[in-house]
């Protein structure tokens, strides 16, 4: 993978995650302080972020079939792919567990409740993280 292509891939992954983060921030934080932020303004921004997230997820994970790496049967991988996928799964597992535990800790300390959207985005995150790590490192599978 050329440096230019790798930068493009990383930018795509980064922006995809940023759009998810933006949706979460608006849903979880801004909406709790409605009196400070204009609801119409935050509504438009979250709509843009949602549209961008759907389009970029389709282009990055669905169209390229990257999302399948988590579900694919190991018999379909050769030894190199198995090594790379295993490494990506190991990294994503440790990262996801730390992120999830930190979020749960913050929510319990703040006495907030988790909403459905938040959990749905965490499931999305868990599914695409190994593929993101693989592609971020420029591995070819």
């Amino acid at each position: 993978m050329s440096t230019k292509e790798l930068i493009r891939v990383r930018l795509g992954i980064g922006l995809n995650y940023l759009s998810v983060l933006l949706i979460l921030v608006i849903m979880e934080y801004v909406n709790r302080f409605e009196n400070i932020f204009n609801p119409r303004f935050t509504g438009i921004i979250s709509l843009f972020a949602l549209v961008y997230w759907i389009i970029s997820s389709y282009k990055i994970y669905w169209k390229t079939k990257w999302w399948k790496y988590v579900h694919q049967n190991v018999d379909k991988f050769d030894e190199r792919e198995l090594k790379f996928v295993g490494e990506a799964m190991r990294l994503s597992y440790s990262f996801f567990v730390v992120v999830l535990a930190s979020i749960l800790l913050i929510y319990s300390l703040a006495d907030w409740s988790l909403n459905g959207l938040f959990v749905a985005l965490l499931i999305y995150f868990a599914h695409v993280l190994p593929a993101s790590i693989l592609k971020w490192q420029g591995y070819q599978i």
Partner: peptide, 11 residues
């Protein structure tokens, strides 16, 4: 040899 063609490139 029974691997992905990209693995040949890596090797």
């Amino acid at each position: 040899v029974g691997v992905n063609f990209q693995t040949i490139g890596y090797i």
